[in-house]
């Protein structure tokens, strides 16, 4: 008779959102769209990441980062936002913590801004519409 013991490996995979010690990677999501925030949050929490904060513009994102630091592993950052855009927020976060891992989230068509963000020090970028597999791949590349 087959038992669960015959298939131990598939279901026991450690979620990608957890480090070697089993602790969840902590993310701050900065985006002015409630829809995008929800989407990113769903994709990441389904893999075991922990959303420790969200912000609706670059300025709030910067303040939240400072508040959460050092209990935040990475940030997803929209580019076009009111009050302070994602590139300025990225710059200021890096001034505060030069090791900060910031992943830009952009609609297709903002290549110049994405390039600028990468030159400044963003770790990676994700293009909308968001694809679950690509989001996870880019996030994992950036934090590991």
């Amino acid at each position: 008779m087959k038992t669960k013991m015959d298939f131990p490996s598939i279901n026991e995979r450690k979620p990608d959102g957890q480090g070697d010690g089993g602790q969840a990677y902590k993310v701050l999501i900065v985006d002015d769209s409630m829809f995008v925030k929800k989407q990113i949050s769903q994709i990441l929490t389904s893999e075991g990441f922990e959303v420790v904060g969200t912000a609706g513009d670059g300025l709030e994102g910067l303040e939240k980062y400072k508040e959460l630091y050092p209990d935040v592993d990475f940030v997803t950052m929209d580019i076009t936002m009111p009050k302070m855009d994602g590139i300025s927020s990225l710059e200021k976060i890096l001034e505060f913590d030069k090791e900060a891992k910031v992943i830009m989230v952009s609609a297709l068509g903002k290549q110049d801004l994405v390039k600028k963000a990468l030159m400044i020090g963003a770790k990676n970028y994700i293009v909308k519409p968001l694809d679950r597999v690509k989001v996870l791949e880019r996030v994992l590349q950036s934090i590991k």
Partner: peptide, 8 residues
């Protein structure tokens, strides 16, 4: 947003 960004 996504459609216009790509069109632009």
């Amino acid at each position: 947003n996504m459609i216009t960004a790509q069109a632009v």
